[in-house]
Design a protein around this nucleic acid. Sequence first.
DNA 1: CGCGTTGACAGTCACGTTTCTGCATGATCA
DNA 2: TGATCATGCAGAAACGTGACTGTCAACGCG
Lengths: 362, 362
Amino acid sequence: MSRAETSRRGSRPGRAGIRDVAAAAGVSITTVSDALNGKGRLPDATRRHVREVADRLGYRPSAAARTLRTGKSGLIGLTVTTYGDEPFTFTEFAYFAEMARAATSAALARGYALVILPATSRHDVWSNVALDGTVVIDPSDHDPVVSELVRQGLPVVSDGRPAGSLPVTAWVDNDHEAAVLGILDHLADAGARRIGLLTGTTTDTYTHLSTTAYLRWCERVGQDPVYEAYPAHDPCAGAVAADRLLARPDRPDAVYGLFDPNGTDLLAAARRYGLRVPEDLLLVCCSESTVYASTEPPITTLSLKPRRIGTAVIQVLIDAIEGLHSDQPVEQVIPTELIVRTSSQRRPPRTTVSPPRSPERE
Amino acid sequence: MSRAETSRRGSRPGRAGIRDVAAAAGVSITTVSDALNGKGRLPDATRRHVREVADRLGYRPSAAARTLRTGKSGLIGLTVTTYGDEPFTFTEFAYFAEMARAATSAALARGYALVILPATSRHDVWSNVALDGTVVIDPSDHDPVVSELVRQGLPVVSDGRPAGSLPVTAWVDNDHEAAVLGILDHLADAGARRIGLLTGTTTDTYTHLSTTAYLRWCERVGQDPVYEAYPAHDPCAGAVAADRLLARPDRPDAVYGLFDPNGTDLLAAARRYGLRVPEDLLLVCCSESTVYASTEPPITTLSLKPRRIGTAVIQVLIDAIEGLHSDQPVEQVIPTELIVRTSSQRRPPRTTVSPPRSPERE
DNA sequence: CGCGTTGACAGTCACGTTTCTGCATGATCA
DNA sequence: TGATCATGCAGAAACGTGACTGTCAACGCG
């Protein structure tokens, strides 16, 4: 009787606790826990009986209590560096969306869920959620949040090489230098004499590595660098920079744009100056968007394979969380893919009538 | 001595508990809790002292313990209906991204964080995370997850009118019927004689309401409906459907596309058939993407205002969680915005040279 | 001077699990 | 037949926090 009273005192009458299940099944709490978690040594009959009673009562174990007891929450933080007030970065939006999607999927398959946690958030929100580990996208030089997390002993895996001496557990990234060099060679092969670059003013490693690779390539082949840099988080500045690049007296006859919207911006600017693509201007931009398959003309894009990156990041992180000695290296490089379309080929492949675009799956 | 031993037994040596703070500050656990949470009656001197000691030890209260004790986790689930294996829906991608971004921001401002939880996920993942409430984007007819959550007493707010008798706590949506009617009138005003529709085969309320509004409009003005429906989650099917729509013998002279990629698909199809936009074909599509500002020609789009919706959904949900009697109605309608560009105007506004696009901020 | 009041803290229980230890009971074996 | 052992389960101790209750001194007041 006092037992029933005790169990009734619990938080919500709607939620049944493990005690209620134990009482209803006529067994002890231990037996219920063991039966539901597949532990201990119980005959199958008892196991089935307990499970059935639990189902009948609609019993759901309290995640908070389990987390408190086991120290594992099954939650992984997902952080993106922010540039303005918004918690996500504006640019590379399709990239982020794809990457987050793959990461969510991969985490889910291993029983984890993702928590969106902007880097700018106040400390109290960060400490208010129990995390088993964190994914950081493009961390800035000396991210205080990352240091704090590492100091607490949490595994942190970053998408993108950490700048400076950021003490992340592991990272996954593309070989951005090789990608840029590949594109420049591709454009040169297509007949480009002077290749321009549309780049960013931010200090992240992606922008930095890509730009220096471009500069070194220029030096090697003896071309004067022709580039415009703009704050990548401002969608308006990109259009202006594209226009400026094509308005220069030393106008390039080929351009590579580092950011997603650069393709349409450059295309619009080319039209304004009466430049035909690809006859007068070769175009490539880094993007995950499928719209470039059906622009006029279709634009060659560099895919950073965000799905592979998102998946890899999660696998490495969960391996670290669960203490598995992964045979994967803690620094993983994912290859990029150049999707060649009309905009970077002087001789259009077959016909100017583009067929309905293909699925373009991974 | 046994005290020190006890406190040392705690999980990780790196993490200090409230006991360690109490011991180091020479006060009791109660005093530490009260001092840090601003409760009880303590002199400011003690409060400051405790806070300082806590900072020095790098004390972070355990989120799990706090959640267990208070029953509040500060976590909000974010669910999207899924069509394939992937946890997000492919279509309306920019919409989802913007909406999620605004929701994250709004939740953060009130001290909550968002957990990404696909509707298809197994039950165990759902019950493994302690949620204070859930946001559901475009729930399907009889979503079992939603019913389960409501049965547990959790507040559930949906983005989009719930279909059928889904027992959500509240919902936020656009007036899709009014939006479609407005677009059709807009196109008719621009001189359209036969307006076609590119719609989806899915059963969500957005597709349903929009399509019936179109059919009723056709009936009212005495036009034969001309539409193609395709599975909206398939990016390839959209291009095919756009092509089929323009290949019909009763080819429309204006088209409204319900989904984000329809604009570029229709534009590509129009080029294949030698149709000039807007002279031979008027075009409008529903999209949040800024690429339509710099296509050739720029395409008129309908914005569903995902930022306003995401913010509203979170506000309503958190009000419900915290038991605030919101003076807002539990059913909130957010107005849409038609961004008129060249593709839906028979007389181009001023010049065919489009200036760099404007920020287009909310 | 005695009594109620108030400030400033300390002790202790409870949140709902998991898990370690331990006690019966029947089976096995020397 | 008595000692050993595996089996099936119960009890109770944590996990770290928040909140209630209790204690002790100082103080004002009749």
